[in-house]
Amino acid sequence: MRQIVLEVRDLRVSYHTPSGDLPAVDGVSFSLAQGEAMGLVGESGAGKSTMALALMRLLPRNVSMLEGGIELEGRDLLGMDEEAFRHEVRWQKMAMVFQGAQEAFNPVVRVGEQIAEPMVVLGGMTKAAAGAEALRLLGVVRLPGEIIQRYPHELSGGMKQRAVIAMALAMKPRLLLLDEPTSALDVTVQAQIMDQLKELKQELGLAMVFITHDIALASDICDTIGVMYAGKMAELGPAEDVLAKPQHPYTRLLLASLPRLSQDAPPQFIPGSPPDLRMPPRGCRFHPRCPQVFGRCILEEPPLLGVGEGHESRCWLAEDRP
């Protein structure tokens, strides 16, 4: 039985800029069940990070529009009072591992204190109990316990990344948002951390939203994959289906851009660059870069069309299928 943890309905976020409003997320919907991981994949500027910030309600001040619905275990997050959201949801129900763990720690406070802090402030634990818990969490991410006494500048990049994950687990959240958690690390460390995340997912039954530009990395851990392009969901479906039978030309190009050992063909680059969202192209947003573009693409924007069991693609090509 799938128990829905997170439900996002038709989410829209726009930023205010001097040269017009910029719709960074433009009508995105998906849902996520307990113990499931969802991958959000796309180029930078596709709206992935804005999605995460909107979920945490940490959007910058220049947001001009925030619409749609976000429900966490049935509670409407967008309508909640700010103070209640801070006090009841953040870090307790939903935590986040940020992109750029290198700057995620306060440089003048010891690492252990920063991990334990929410347990004391929000969870009402004693300092000693919170310290012991922080020590346990460091063990979970396989860090030596003495790190508790260290200052952030004394940790290596990989250690900081693990410490950030330990910090995110502090309040035993139901949902973990991971925004490019391994992008700054070298490949071996990246693999270790991905293994750990997989373990955590199984052991703790965490729901995860995994945000990355690297579709291969996402396929490693995710049950569902959503490919975002220019603020919209281009393709959404079970990970195996999206990887094995990509329906959207953009997904195909993303997959083709990956270097592979088993193929002789060199990786391809996607020509062109993402559109300026202040003046998006008419019709399908991908049409200027699409190798399979035809007349209708330029005139009309396609809706998300069903292409299989729980598999949708925002492409007119999908309409021909049964």
């Binding site: 945490m56 940490l58 953040r90 940020f98 750029g100 995620a104 306060n106 406070v109 929410p118 402030v121």
Partner: peptide
Amino acid sequence: QEFFVTVARAKGLPEGRVMRRYILRVASP
């Protein structure tokens, strides 16, 4: 504007504590 301040807010810490421990304390040197 530092990133760890955003992280502190994400951690659900109250604004006053963020100001004292994450902004003033760091800005003091």
